[in-house]
């Protein structure tokens, strides 16, 4: 019986990812890492949660294994399963096991999307036991001090079916990553898309306006990611208003009146 698997080195991040801290999140995350406490990142979509994890992994010089959660994610998808290869059975580590074995950072993105019975697997791993039971192999792994668990979710959904269980959430140190302040966001957009700062500032202004629409029926305002998309299109020579229309307006809503209002914001600013 062999153990197959991905090479952990592939998950190492060699180049410094571009990340500008909003507050003290890096210090707190490092302290959490040092003390072996898992991390919960809260924040609206596209506000830099995943990028933050990449940066952290680079800073701690640990490999980062990211799992995007969905409602069909099973426990064996996380822990691992047997495969057959050439008449031989072969154990294949799941991402979680891989991370525990090698002391990597395991990041479960959008953890609320996973079924609740799946997320329970992380419980023993997320408290002071720091253990992962691999039932099929009868193996109990204890995580080395370098291992870190991090999950993320977006509290804005307001769906009772997509809320985290108290027993899960109370195991984490929670960091809220909102949209960055205007100056910082301008810098991010300009750096990521390669557009002028002045133009980036205008894009950020549009985003700020859409974020003011929450009471008017927009679930979430334009995220930093959308601004980067818009910037990339503009950089590629697409007319700025058109670029924003396809990346921001249409991405945000289907409501005709809101579409109209957002388009008007764009044409006012750009």
């Amino acid at each position: 019986m062999q153990i197959a698997g991905q090479k952990i080195e592939e998950h190492l991040i060699h180049e410094r990812p571009f990340y500008l801290p909003q507050k003290n999140e890096i210090i707190i995350a490092e302290a959490a890492y040092k003390n072996g406490i898992p991390l919960l990142l809260k924040g609206p979509t596209g506000s830099g949660k995943s990028r933050f994890m990449q940066f952290l992994a680079w800073k701690l010089k640990r490999p980062l294994i990211t799992v995007s959660c969905h409602d069909d994610l099973s426990t064996s998808d996380l822990v691992g399963r047997y495969l057959i290869r050439g008449g031989e059975t072969l154990w294949m580590d799941g991402p979680m096991t891989l991370a525990v074995r090698h002391g990597a950072i395991c990041y479960l993105d959008e953890v609320v999307e996973a079924r609740k019975d799946t997320t329970v697997v992380i419980h023993p791993l997320a408290d002071d036991r720091r253990e992962l039971a691999i039932e099929k192999r009868g193996e109990l792994l204890t995580a080395p001090p370098e291992f870190m668990l991090a999950v993320s979710y977006n509290p804005g959904y307001q769906s009772i079916l997509k809320d985290m269980k108290q027993s899960t959430r109370q195991r984490f140190i929670a960091l809220e990553l909102g949209y960055p302040p205007a100056d910082l966001e301008t810098e991010i957009v300009s750096h990521e898309s390669g557009i002028e700062k002045q133009l980036a500032r205008l894009l950020v202004r549009i985003a700020e306006m859409t974020r003011g629409l929450k009471d008017s029926g927009l679930q979430e305002g334009a995220s930093t990611r959308l601004l980067v998309h818009a910037g990339l299109l503009i950089k590629d020579g697409i007319e700025p208003r058109e670029a924003c229309r396809v990346t921001i307006t249409q991405a945000l809503t289907d409501d005709r009146k809101l579409l109209y209002a957002i388009d008007e914001m764009i044409s006012s600013v750009l």
């Binding site: 003011g212 008017s216 009146k257 209002a261 008007e264």
Partner: peptide, 15 residues
């Protein structure tokens, strides 16, 4: 009004 109101509220971030 249905179109202009969200515009102006987004702009002002006030009601």
């Amino acid at each position: 009004i249905p179109k202009l109101l969200p515009y102006i509220r987004g702009l002002s971030r006030k009601t």
